[in-house]
Write a protein that binds this DNA or RNA. Structure first.
Length: 105
RNA sequence: CGAGUUGGCUGUACGGUUGCGGGCAAAGAAAUUUGCGUGAGGAAAGUCCGAGCAUCGCAGGGCAGGAUGCCUGCUAACGGCAGGUGAAGGCGACUUCAAGGAAAGUGAACAGAAACAUACCGCAGACCUUUUCGGUCUGUAAGGGCGAAAUGGCGAGGUAAGAGCUCACCGAGGCCGCGGUAACGCGGCUUGCAGGUCAAACCCCAUCCGAUGCAAGAUUGGGACUGCGUCUUGCUUAAAUGCAGAGGGCUGCCCGUCCGACGUAUUCCGUGAACAUCGCUCGAACAUACAGGCGACUGUAUGUCUAGAUAGAUAACCGUACUCGACAGAACUCGGCUUACAGGCCAAUCUCGGAUA
RNA sequence: GCACCGUUAGCUCAACUGGAUAGAGCGUUGGUCUACGGAACCAAAGGCUAGGGAUUCGAAUUCCUUACGGUGCA
């Protein structure tokens, strides 16, 4: 299953203005229903230096591609991690799944 | 054996399943699929210097401005490196140093008598007054005091008291000789030594520098009519055609030089401007050997191709081993500097101390 | 990625060309006034000048370096 990456600053602004929010322990997710699945990651410099930020993005990408099937409908998504001491793959995956369940309602 | 000094290397390893960027090959009309191989660092970082490269109509001169500052080399270049000199520190191996010029000029708070020569206390002499205390003049930089700094240090002679006033030694300046490419060193002679410190204060001298940076820049956005705005002074011409003048560009200013257009809107024709392409990785490249040089480095030969992304590629899960893994992620490319860094390893006929023979 | 700027009291800013106690306003605390509060007036506290090093007799100021914050560039 494939997904596109969200890249344009314009598209991010649309989501920040009109997207619906879903919260989970480690992530904040903005989404808008659309024809195909598009995913973007918003990560500020507060999360640390380049190595740390790259690590977070890789974990989110891996977790998203694993549990993308559980999405209730195709939509455009922006994922924003919360600042924390440490991160793990399992936390992100659990957060994504719980957020997807809440989107279904 | 212990304690050090200097220089260098390394920066978890192996396996399985599922994935990611680039390349090559094959299949396919295409989307795409399959296979092979490849994919972060010593600092990739900070952006502190130096270059390549690109654009700025030309890349010219001067002023302004900026940088550097012992000597000789190395280098494409450098504010870098190497080898020396001098000074400071260390028992030593060794380490550190923006290390030109203060008789070109300006400036330097407060305190202090004085910070270009000046006498506050003191010391000494002479005179005055005199019971004493004292006062005036002169000499004096040895002592006190002020200060970050007080006119070279120390000892002896000398003197009314003192003073390079005289002498020895040390320091400083000058001259000569010798050694060294040079910085400078050594030796001799000579000058009693009229002036300190600060130039990472202004400044002077010497040398160097055009500006902007890959978000530079190039390609595919082209043509026609019309309108509007900026510039448009005069003469002339069919015409911005020509001449003079004004204006504008070229680095902040001047000289000099270049320029006749520039911007924008509507309509029509055309249309691929965005998940674009190029710049974008073969280069002052890397590895090995030999040669030259104390060394930085250079030359020759052979071999290798070693990321090229663009919301930005190295991940997820599992297993095994150990000393249980630090700092940290390429973004046009090189040469340096600086800063961060768990641990491990190596070298030097290196240094000091102890023990034994 | 590239270029550049800033950091001084709780907050907003000064401090001239290095010179001594680093000032001002707002705020805070205490007092005067008032029946009480506000306003006004008087007084006080509060600073390792972002951290470290260098130059200098002397550094908020000059130089080097680190950290943090911010601005511009299609």
């Amino acid at each position: 299953m494939q997904y596109r990456r969200l890249k344009k600053n314009r598209d991010f602004n649309i989501l920040f203005r009109k997207g619906k929010k879903v919260f989970s322990p480690y992530l904040t997710i903005l989404y808008i229903p659309s024809d195909e699945t598009v995913m973007g990651i918003a990560l500020s410099k507060k999360h640390g230096k380049a190595v740390r930020r790259n690590r977070i993005k890789r974990l989110i990408r891996a977790a998203f591609s694993e549990c993308m099937d559980k999405l209730p409908f195709t939509c455009t998504v922006v994922i924003m991690p919360k600042v924390a001491e440490s991160y793990s793959f399992d936390d992100f995956r659990a957060s994504l799944l719980s957020a997807f369940r809440r989107m279904q309602k």
